[in-house]
Simulated assay, not measured.
Amino acid sequence: MRIHFTPDDLLHIRFADEPAPLLELAMALATLHRPASDPVFTRWRREAARELPGHARPLLELIPPCGRGPQFVDPVVPDVQEGFERVAATSAEQVRREMARVAGFGQAPTPWTRRIAARDRAAWSELVTGLHDAYDSVLTEPWRRLRAGFHAEVAWRTSRWGRLGLGAGLESLLPGSRLDGLVWHMAPEKHADFHLDGRGLTLYPTATWSGPPLIATAPDDSKLLVYPALTPLPLLPEPQDADPLGTLLGRTRAQVLEALAEQRTTGNLAQDLGISAASASQHATALREAGLVATRREGKAAWHGCTALGAELLRTGAR
């Protein structure tokens, strides 16, 4: 498996900004019935399989153990509700294209997946319901750990790249890979060439997958490289609740400020922290009035993010 860069592509290598809930779910479901998964997932696989709701089980017919399922089930968006809406709105043409691609990997069709391919309304209702149930069962509890692990991985990788350089930084993502000129050689068990042609490469670490790297398309049309994060889900610790900021601002408001180190909509904020949208808006407003948060509007969405003062307060609290 080789990725071919142009010189311009090397200037457009970046990490994804946020984990995508439905992409994480697809990787988790592939891992759940992947016999070759890292042994560290053994207990997690057993427990997740036992607790997976009946409505979610047909998803295992759609998402194969190799992880290369149809891309319409795992849109790369950070808002889980938007992800569900995108799945439901998938065009018939995209469904046909993706189901044909998956069939090319040797995934045998079943009566249910044939109905999915035919865009049968009842089957698609079952698909969306199954995704909701699977997300609630598999990812709701560990989501804070997954998200914290994602950002810890990205922070650690980017800090090392300044010392390692681009080539060694890329090679460190996938031990055994090598960058030879403008070609990155990886995953020798695969036979595929991907030409970026100036579109760039987005790197996405996932703690729910231990298999070989996977290639998809990011929302900005760059290639998306999904690779196993350094720390897999079963080993991710609970995020630390250090409390200097909690003492100053109150625990929930401190969590809101910490979350807004990355820009979020009010809905994203509510989802990530497990609070109501009204509460998220109230906390963001209080922080904005204190000069710690700035808000901008795009259509009906309000995007919030730390100001320089808020970021400095976060750095001071972390120290």
Rank of each mutant, 00 (worst) to 15 (best):
G169P: 10
E153F: 14
P142T: 08
V102E: 03
Q81P: 00
A134P: 09
E171S: 12
P75S: 06
A89Q: 14
A108D: 11
L174C: 05
P78T: 04
E141T: 13
R115W: 01
V80F: 12
R121S: 15
P175I: 00
T90A: 15
W143K: 02
L146G: 05
L146T: 03
F105D: 12
G106Y: 11
S159C: 06
T129I: 00
R68F: 10
T129S: 13
V73C: 09
R160M: 14
G83K: 05
L146D: 09
S177Q: 03
D133F: 03
I63Q: 14
L170Y: 11
E141N: 01
E98V: 02
G169K: 09
V95G: 05
D74E: 07
W112Y: 02
L170I: 09
T140S: 14
D120M: 10
Q71W: 10
W161T: 12
A168M: 05
A89C: 02
I63T: 01
G176R: 06
P64R: 01
L174S: 00
F84S: 01
A92V: 08
G69W: 05
M99N: 06
R68A: 15
W161E: 13
L139V: 07
S125F: 07
H132E: 15
S137M: 08
T158P: 01
V95D: 01
V95R: 13
